[in-house]
Amino acid sequence: MEVITTFLNGLSLGGVYALIALGYTMVYGIAKMLNFAHGDVIMVGGYTVMVFFNLTGQPLVAALIAVVFCSLVGVVIEKLAYKPLRGASPLAVLITAIGVSYLLESLAQIIFGSSHKIVMLADLGKLILGSLVIDLNTVVTLLSAIAIMAALTLFVNKTKTGKAMLAVSEDRHAAELMGVSVNKIIMITFAIGSALAAVAGTFYILKTPDVSTTMGAMPGIKAFTAAVIGGIGSIPGAMLGGILLGVIETVCNAIPALSNFSIAIEFGLLIIILLVKPTGLLGKKKREKV
């Protein structure tokens, strides 16, 4: 039974990583940039949830406000920091993203102080199936993550905006010639990615109710790793990578002899996968004409 509980915990943590990884992978796939400030948008989402949960006492309302607010933050970041660098070297964009990351952390510290805060969003209780006791928060996190991923996949494949996103990710210039507004698509991508970060932040607080200015840093790095494992730019790849990383981390933490090495094992997996399949598990090889 403990194995099942651990596995479910892993799936649920993996769901959170997958949601964050989706943000990374969408932005990379469409804007061709690594948004290292993405982890800090999770933190913005965490604080927004905290503020509005304290005000309203309603976790769902707080989460919805966080989704809207983070989308706006994502759009503002894109407009002010990244749009002026369109066409600049990838290194300049990367450094700017790191700068945005520190800016967000510093702003949060000025506003909320440096102390950690506990936010008890909701305790949904336990599901008892014979001798198996499952935390319902875990189940809700897992099911919601799966539902959001499915909705996102449908959105990208079935809607006009989603297809425009795919077009921009395939060939930005050709898409522009076909009448797609690349700037608008990139802006929408940032809005969706940041909204997903807010959702991930909410689920993360459900699992670990500790809100701090650095709360997004490590999940952000792990989710980026998940996106690379799955194949950066690939939505199913981000899901697969996130789930895989979450399960591995949770299983390692459950085995005392391995718990000290969980991070090493996760990143070791990244190295092995990149050696065997450099494009990631579900990444596609691209032929370049020379």
Binding site: L13, T138, K207, E249, T250, S259, N260
Partner: peptide, 16 residues
């Protein structure tokens, strides 16, 4: 049960 600075994203396993 142990954790490290970088692995403290979830204590469910250690609590178990």
């Amino acid at each position: 049960a142990t954790f490290t600075k970088d692995s403290k994203t979830d204590f469910a396993s250690q609590a178990n």
